[in-house]
Design a protein around this nucleic acid. Sequence first.
DNA 1: TTGATAGGCAAGCGAGCACTTGCCTATCCT
DNA 2: AGGATAGGCAAGTGCTCGCTTGCCTATCAA
Lengths: 102, 102
Amino acid sequence: MVVADDLFKALADSTRRTILDELAEKSGQTLFEICSRLSMKHQLGISRQAISQHLAVLEAAGLVETRREGRYKFHDLNTAPLRQITERWLVPDPSGPEKSTS
Amino acid sequence: MVVADDLFKALADSTRRTILDELAEKSGQTLFEICSRLSMKHQLGISRQAISQHLAVLEAAGLVETRREGRYKFHDLNTAPLRQITERWLVPDPSGPEKSTS
DNA sequence: TTGATAGGCAAGCGAGCACTTGCCTATCCT
DNA sequence: AGGATAGGCAAGTGCTCGCTTGCCTATCAA
């Protein structure tokens, strides 16, 4: 499991959350596709390298998975890590005390 | 509704997440009670003021609610804001396109 | 092979954040 | 009143983080 710190740090940035929105709407986008969408739809004047770094953070958090095909690298959303957020506080386990995962 | 940015920024710090853990275990704690618990149970060598600032951030995010009684200020956990996290990505709305809330 | 496209690596900079330090206010008890 | 307890305000500091800049590698098309 990805450590909680990576997950929450990844979600802490609004640009990264917008990237997740874009991947939720259309899965399997390349870096350049995400770049153009962010600048067109969201008026984000941001460089390609910045977005590439954001994607690396999201991938480290397990929120984005990638697959290579030739010179293209496709990015897919993975919302599974989000479940540990709700499980940590929304469902207090009565059987045992909490284990701090951070 | 608390803006998404405040919520995610509040969750981005591991000390704040530990505070939420403590409040989930025992609701209605005072600042000093949280202080002693963090130092005893979690070996966090951290000042009272630091924790006070953390609580302010959590309160701004809507994750903690407070009530005054004399010279005591009690802190209660509110997990309601966490729902917008799962609702944002786990439940893609097929009827309309996404609205960026960040 | 040459150029164009898609992406990666690394150093540097500026803003934001966590934390400390010092002092202040409010409430309660004797 | 006076001390003790519970908490608040604000300035300063060091580190993290987002972003840029510059250059490099890999794949594909002509």
